[in-house]
Amino acid sequence: MSTSRAQALTSAPLPCSDEVLLLVDVINPMSFPTADDLLPSAWAAAQRVARLKKRLAARGVTAIYANDNYGTWHSEFRDILGACQMLPGPRGDIARLLTPTPDDLVILKPQHSAFHSTPLRHLLTQMGTKKLTIVGWAADMCVMLSATDACMYGYEVWVPQDCIAAETVERFDMAVKQLGGAFDCSVRPAFRADLRAGAPPQRV
């Protein structure tokens, strides 16, 4: 058996991480009909996500990618990542910018929420996680449903509003209002200077 195959069968302990960065659907072919409406704000948010991820990693915060499998049940995450990295324009730019590191964890999800029919809650329990920072897209769909499930499971949830994206300003504003109101998530931006310097993140 080759060394790489032997390593694949070797159990690796999960890191202990009181806080986890959850990246929702950031590796994304953006192949749905209204994707062009989402791309500009997703690319702007992706650049801030990359900065936030680096900042949190320096504090020892583990990153977990919760990614849609896009109905490709015969594929695994590396196949999806490779295909997205090869795409032209912002689609490929986002995948290349947010490529997971070897220390990051990855799960595939079949539905909108990162918790639905996935091992996410088991992973978080094993890691001793109490707080989730959730970023990604779309703000009013997969991010919102993942965040509301996290709230119902008792996690402290931060959804930095400058690290999420939606197809329209109205949908973005609705998601932020719901998350910060009814679900009592923190929606403070990760980079306040960015917001002071120009337009709100969804308008970039």
Rank of each mutant, 00 (worst) to 15 (best):
S146M: 04
Q178W: 06
A45N: 02
L87P: 04
W158F: 01
H122K: 05
C163L: 04
M174G: 02
F32P: 09
G60R: 06
R188A: 15
Q7D: 02
R59P: 00
D37H: 13
R48S: 12
D93E: 14
H112D: 10
A182M: 15
S113K: 03
F115A: 04
L56Q: 06
D79Y: 07
G89S: 13
C84G: 14
P102K: 08
P189Y: 05
K54W: 01
H112W: 07
V204R: 12
Q126I: 00
E170I: 07
K131E: 14
G154A: 06
F32K: 05
E170V: 14
R78L: 14
M1I: 01
S75D: 14
E76S: 12
A138L: 08
E19C: 08
G128S: 11
T10A: 09
R203T: 13
T125D: 13
A63D: 01
A199K: 15
P110F: 02
R171H: 11
V143N: 08
L21E: 00
H122Q: 07
M1F: 00
A8M: 07
L179S: 07
T148V: 13
Y153L: 14
P13L: 02
D140R: 00
G198D: 12
L98R: 07
A12G: 00
S2R: 10
L23N: 00
A63K: 01
L179E: 04
R203L: 05
P13H: 01
D25T: 02
T129E: 10
Y70E: 12
A83T: 10
I64L: 10
Q7T: 03
L23E: 05
R5N: 03
C16W: 01
R96Q: 15
D140C: 08
G92N: 12
P102Y: 05
K177I: 08
D103H: 06
S4L: 09
V169E: 15
K130M: 02
Q47W: 04
T3W: 01
V187L: 08
V169N: 12
T125A: 11
W43Q: 05
I107C: 04
V159K: 01
G82S: 14
A58S: 10
Q85I: 05
A138N: 04
H112V: 00
T99C: 14
L195V: 15
P102L: 04
T125W: 04
L132Q: 02
S41C: 09
L108D: 02
L39V: 10
A50E: 09
K54Q: 08
Q47P: 03
N28L: 03
T72L: 13
R48C: 03
T148E: 02
V143E: 05
S2P: 10
D173N: 15
H74C: 12
I134L: 07
D184Q: 13
P33L: 03
Q111N: 11
A138F: 05
A42D: 03
V26P: 00
P90H: 15
G154I: 04
A138E: 09
P15M: 02
P29T: 06
S4P: 01
T133D: 01
L21Y: 00
M152T: 05
K109W: 07
V204P: 06
R59G: 03
K109I: 06
V157A: 01
T133I: 15
T129R: 08
R192C: 03
